[in-house]
Design a protein around this nucleic acid. Sequence first.
DNA 1: AATGAATGAGGATTCATTCAT
DNA 2: TATGAATGAATCCTCATTCAT
Lengths: 196, 196, 196, 196
Amino acid sequence: MEKKKRDKREAILRAALELIAEHGFHGAPTAMIAAKANVAIGSIYRYFENKDALIITLHNEIECAAMKIITVDYDRGKPLKERFFHVARRMLKYMIEHPLEFRFVEQFFYSPYGIAFRRDKFFADTAIDNDEDILKGLYDDGRSQQIIKDFELSVFFSLAFGILFNIARDNVVGFNKLDDIVIDKIVGACWDAIKL
Amino acid sequence: MEKKKRDKREAILRAALELIAEHGFHGAPTAMIAAKANVAIGSIYRYFENKDALIITLHNEIECAAMKIITVDYDRGKPLKERFFHVARRMLKYMIEHPLEFRFVEQFFYSPYGIAFRRDKFFADTAIDNDEDILKGLYDDGRSQQIIKDFELSVFFSLAFGILFNIARDNVVGFNKLDDIVIDKIVGACWDAIKL
Amino acid sequence: MEKKKRDKREAILRAALELIAEHGFHGAPTAMIAAKANVAIGSIYRYFENKDALIITLHNEIECAAMKIITVDYDRGKPLKERFFHVARRMLKYMIEHPLEFRFVEQFFYSPYGIAFRRDKFFADTAIDNDEDILKGLYDDGRSQQIIKDFELSVFFSLAFGILFNIARDNVVGFNKLDDIVIDKIVGACWDAIKL
Amino acid sequence: MEKKKRDKREAILRAALELIAEHGFHGAPTAMIAAKANVAIGSIYRYFENKDALIITLHNEIECAAMKIITVDYDRGKPLKERFFHVARRMLKYMIEHPLEFRFVEQFFYSPYGIAFRRDKFFADTAIDNDEDILKGLYDDGRSQQIIKDFELSVFFSLAFGILFNIARDNVVGFNKLDDIVIDKIVGACWDAIKL
DNA sequence: AATGAATGAGGATTCATTCAT
DNA sequence: TATGAATGAATCCTCATTCAT
């Protein structure tokens, strides 16, 4: 009973993910999402208030799941460089191993949804959750230990992770081929960008 | 007569640029573009085959104009590092000084248009125009002179310029403040990322 | 068991009454009626064939209950004028003391339901029930005793009671304030309208 | 050019009038209105902001046209009783000669539109237009000349005109047959209701 | 008997594109 | 050539009704 309910919800989210990742928001009308999920159109509205809510939920669940994967085995006791390599490596791997999720999140990020999302985040002073805590922790430690360059936080993020998003984007469309060795070298280049 | 015709075309492109940059593709129906351009709806279809053509044209013209600005005074005789700094610095400056164009190109890049655009580019072997020639030249020189790290071209591009797009994006929404000194330090970090 | 069953039916009717009176037919979907009645949606269809049947039943029950209240203590032996005052006064009082019922019946009367209802009534020659018997009795007596004006029955009804519905409608929305004295004066005016 | 434009607008209003009068608001979806008006669905939205605006406009135009017809030849110099007969007689005649308009206005009046409309009117102190001026003038004169009964304005309106609406409603569905003689007798009964 | 998830036809609205003037 | 009214397919969403549990 409970199982089936959850299944249907998941099917809708999955269908939306696949359609939006592949065809963009324009290519994912509710009727098509419902069809792909083997569900009646109306059922979407039992599980989500409206299409926007469905998309925002999907985004949040992906972000949450991704952060869990990325930060597994993360050890705050390890030296800064090692911690950075741990996070950056997993981040890049996550993106190339989850191309649907990555493409969806990119679509989301640059759509009106993402703009609202970022604005909300920007104005939410204290809403720093654990995930960002880890990333911000890297910055704080690096600065206080005089290991990384003297930039403000947002610039640090761009230097550290902006590269990875570009690499992943190219990978997803087949512009590059990455194996563990190349990934490590790329993360090394990111480290070069931020370290003093 | 010729003048007026050109004016009308420009007005349409400008209106589309402003509306899409500010409100996204959803916020720029043809009727609104025509109104903002002080032009009849039907006139759009005299200058452009359809809305897609208008948007693709706008993108191409912006890309072309940007590259012209970025590569002005470019001296192929200068040392590699100096040439990289020249290009990277101007690229970042262009983006933060042309927020409408930057935001439009970002919207474009992550929309179905951009996906098609990138796919086309990927399959067009010989379609390397002069602008990319300069960027590719940096790569070829750096590799042959053993100055930059051993990555394939697309990875090099991400390392070298991916950071800049992220920085610019944050700047456009007000997440960071950049002056000439910070810009130079950022470009320096990009250099650290690519250099051996 | 029988009790509970009756309770559930009453709860559904009550919920429908309140929602429709307050928000109109548009503001009373079955799901909302069920929720307000603390009943499953499906249960509505156990007690009523469909939504239309529910609404028609509700109307009929209200009409029946109202007539009972209005005609209580009605004495056919009293003089005509006194009988008219008795009925008209109670009718007006009922409407202002039962605003939910009154508003529902009005909604009903002017909706497609009411149109069908009136059509059916018009074509049902013999379907004169006891309640209307009383009203029709007033007309017949008045005419044979030469006390009331020479109009056909339906005009008599409009003259006698049409005023009261308008007064009640205004009262329900707060356009007027009525006490027993004003009510009596109003009924007196109705009497003036019909009497010779 | 101008002619055709006006024609289309009129056709839409006319189609809405006929459908709503006959089948109620539920029986008049935009697609059906458009079809009946021989117009594309989208055209409705060129002439009216949305369906609500269309309906409100239709109501206002009918009310305005009706008041013009009713008050034609109205002579403020005539005695009160004569003025009342003039207005009441024309009002009843208008309603029975314009059954579509009458039925539409009734539907409107008892729908959510009408409720909002009445509320707005109630709270608009100074928004007394010329039409109501005439009706209110009857009341003011009658009261100051001690000709009509001592009721507040809204009760006066119900006594004077409430009857007429009921009569007209019955007439529209064929419950009664009215000729000029009966109409005059009915207006006389209304006069009896209000006069001292 | 009761439940409420599932269904999908139906409704309002938008907007790229056409074409008569 | 310029205009903008007209078009109608496409989209999101609602809600009466059914039916498996």
